[in-house]
Simulated scan of single mutants.
Amino acid sequence: MTIDTAVIMAAGLGSRIPEFSRHGPKGFIRVGGQRIIERSIDILERHGVRRIIIGTGYRAMNYATMVKRHPEVRIECVLNVDYANSGSLETLLRCTEALDCDFLSLESDLLYDSRMIEQVLSSPYANVILASGETQSGDEVYIETNERSELVNLSKDPAMLSRIDAELVGICKLAAETPYALRQWLVKAGLARPAQLHYEEGLVGIADTVLLHVEKTGLPWTEIDTLEHLERANKLIWPRIQSIEKV
């Protein structure tokens, strides 16, 4: 099935990089002369995505203005009014309330090789979590899988896992039914809305009942949550992406 819809989670405060977030959302950080979220929009459009839902919160008006610059793709902004007191899981659930199709999900603060989108789309699995090897980025989310490369657990604390098999990238392919499974899990777990959890914690919550394939990539990427991440993006990751994508 062709996927033509993507959700970008972009509601966060960006409190760990106030030098930039006081002027705009994290997705507006520029690398290589382009805002990283607009680079994602361009990549998604090249891979057949025609509808992008951006989950906004902090400085939501910045995104509302940005939409006008991208008439080539249908962009909708869904406001998480509880962004300051909830997690990315709440943003994801609000963005998917009216969705009835498979979709891509991305974090807004990612810089990544464009071929990662192709890798996720070409996977035969309905639910795919993109992962990488060791990055030493300083803010890793570690993943534990079973022998079939299915999600078992993830955590920023490696002591919480039986073993470390990969690191979370922040790009997923999710089936239309998966948001419903997340909502049902919250109810069964007695967890209130707005959800206080990160979306990846929700994925762990449903891993016992929903097959979540972990797809590893060797392509370069980084999130940009801190000034150290931004320096790494400019000095290491962006030059690698440029050199690979030109081949």
Rank of each mutant, 00 (worst) to 15 (best):
N146G: 06
V73W: 05
L203K: 05
A11Q: 08
R35A: 14
R50F: 06
L168C: 03
A10P: 02
M160W: 13
Q136G: 00
T178A: 15
Q34F: 06
V81N: 12
K246I: 10
A84V: 05
L186C: 12
D157I: 02
I75D: 03
V204W: 05
L44M: 14
G133T: 04
F28A: 12
P158L: 05
D42T: 12
N62A: 14
T135A: 06
G55D: 07
V81L: 09
L219W: 04
P124F: 09
K188N: 14
M61H: 13
V49P: 01
R39P: 01
L211K: 11
A159S: 13
S114H: 07
R232P: 01
K216Y: 00
S21G: 07
I117R: 03
R50N: 14
I237K: 03
A166Q: 02
L92T: 02
L186N: 07
K68R: 15
V128H: 03
H70D: 09
L151G: 01
M9N: 06
E200L: 06
L203Y: 04
A11I: 10
L92D: 00
L151Q: 00
P194G: 09
I8N: 02
A233C: 10
V67I: 15
K246S: 13
H213P: 00
E72L: 09
A189C: 10
